[in-house]
Design a protein around this nucleic acid. Structure first.
Length: 425
RNA sequence: GGAGGCUUCGCCUAGUCUGGUCUAUGGCGCCGCACUGCUAAUGCGGUUUGGGGUAACCCCCCAUCCCGGGUUCAAAUCCCGGAGCCUCCGCCA
């Protein structure tokens, strides 16, 4: 959530941010009035409670009529205190409820608009010219079948649409990707983490996924658990309710976990292959930094993503995601989109978000900076979302015979294999 | 799944039986000051977090003894519910 103080001092800035996101501006006014009610009811409670405490000191010393009188008075006061307490609680709860509905403040450089209004910041590498090479590229689904790497048919039989099996070299390729990604992250100073895939409501809510994104989250009703859509959730909540010494920052984690997404409202979209699936594995980078270091860290996360994609030999572009497509937590988001030859366009492979103090406030993660305790900033960035990376590798590194050249960085993790060959059916 | 124990201001800990003087004890750690011509040692002071008052510091008020209810004029303390941790038993990869 955002800083209440900032809301009080500069409500127009918050309104502008809401407008840019295409969200309800009325929320800001409701919030201001709830906050005022919270403040005044809290002042009243404090006064009454103070009076009650004074009285409580006199009672044990008093005797006889004097005591009876004091007890009567205390009884009346007690009722008033209870009422004031209830009013205070109600106002505080209302303020919290409204505050949690508010998205993060949008960074001023973010392009305003919807999904299509992103700005391309950079293009790295160039798409292969398959025509010049004299063959028509196969899509990843077809290559996956030729290599015996992907089985979507049986995935659907067993679990339904958007499920798949990675088989043979497909399975090995995932393990290679994960190992290579973890190795890169570890070399960069990230602490490797295997994280829970089921989390409690507070973790999911605090990370900001139960707002507009809620329809894409799986929920286990019987136990009130949520399935994470990314290990970001578990990594953000890892330090929930803690105060971290400034000297320990930046704190960087590389999480690996399965990710579950309902993909509601995407019927008919990316239905072929494994580009958009309900379950996949992902290596995610997550940073806790001082707020003033957040923008620099955002750039660093992006650089590590670029290093990763470059190492895999994939042509890609970096975009500055527009306001309407940010998600509640991010103030700014950079996506790396890899070129997918058979689609003739760039598609999202990684995403780096600067949430500054938004998640930290909701999860109560703070830093101790000298005498002061304040919220810190959290950032997250994909290193390797496995299925999409496999899609990009298959399509970009395919040969006329359906074989796939293994990027050099992955070879050590694939027993030195340089090419994935079609299996004879 | 069954039985028992535990949870106090960074860590450890006193206090809970017998409600008010708990504005929570002591140790460790940490910070500051003093002192010995260095380090060490010693002494003194400080050290939970959140909200509010203040332009701000000092300071003051309120809340906070795992969480939520209840009893009471008054709850760390009594009662009920919940969570987490530990031990033992059962089951199990």
């Amino acid at each position: 959530m955002i800083d209440l103080r900032l809301l009080r001092e500069d409500p127009d800035r918050v309104r502008a941010s809401q407008r840019a996101r295409g969200e309800d501006v009325g929320l800001v006014d409701a919030l201001l009035s709830a906050d005022e009610r919270r403040r005044s009811s809290s002042v009243r409670f404090d006064e009454l409670r103070s009076e009650q405490k004074q009285l409580g000191k006199l009672i044990p010393k008093a005797t006889g009529d004097e005591k009876a009188e004091l007890l009567t008075k205390a009884g009346e006061l007690s009722a008033a205190v209870k009422a004031a307490d209830a009013a205070q609680d109600a106002a505080a709860e209302e303020t919290q409820r409204l505050l949690r509905q508010l998205g993060n403040l949008v960074h001023s450089d973010v392009p305003v608009g919807g999904e299509e209004d992103f700005v391309v910041l950079e293009t790295i590498g160039a798409p292969r010219d398959f025509a010049a090479e004299g063959f028509e590229p196969r899509d990843h689904q077809e290559i996956g079948q030729l290599l015996g790497a992907i089985d979507t048919e049986r995935g659907a039989k067993v679990s339904g649409s958007r499920f798949y099996y990675l088989t043979g070299v497909g399975a090995l390729l995932e393990l290679a990707l994960v190992n290579a990604a973890i190795a890169q992250a570890t070399a960069a100073g990230f602490i490797p983490m295997l994280t829970p895939a089921l989390v409690k409501p507070r973790a999911m809510e605090g990370t900001g996924f139960l707002g507009q994104a809620a329809e894409n989250v799986y929920h286990l009703e019987k136990d009130d658990y949520y399935l994470v859509g990314t290990s970001e959730v578990a990594l953000a909540a890892y330090h929930m309710d803690e105060i971290i010494d400034a000297a320990k920052l930046p704190l960087r984690y590389a999480g690996f976990s399965p990710c579950f997404r309902r993909e509601a409202g995407t019927y008919g979209k990316d239905t072929r292959g494994i580009f958009r699936v309900h379950q996949f594995d992902k290596v995610e980078m997550f940073s806790y930094v001082a707020p003033e270091d957040a923008e620099a860290e955002h750039q660093r996360l992006l650089d590590w993503e670029k290093q990763w994609l470059t190492g895999l030999g994939l042509p890609f572009q970096v975009i500055d995601v527009a306001t309407g497509d940010l998600g509640a937590s991010a103030s700014r988001k950079f996506d790396c989109e890899a070129w997918i030859p058979t689609q003739g366009k760039y598609r999202e492979l990684t995403s780096a978000s600067n949430c500054n103090e938004f998640q930290a406030r909701r999860l109560s993660v703070r830093m101790r900076d000298g005498k002061h305790v304040k919220p810190l900033a959290t950032l997250n960035g994909t290193l390797c979302a496995v299925p999409r990376t496999i899609v990009a590798i298959f399509e970009n590194h395919q040969q006329p015979d359906g074989s796939v050249t293994v990027p050099e960085v992955l070879r050590p993790y694939l027993g030195g294999r340089e090419v994935l060959e079609p299996v004879t059916a």
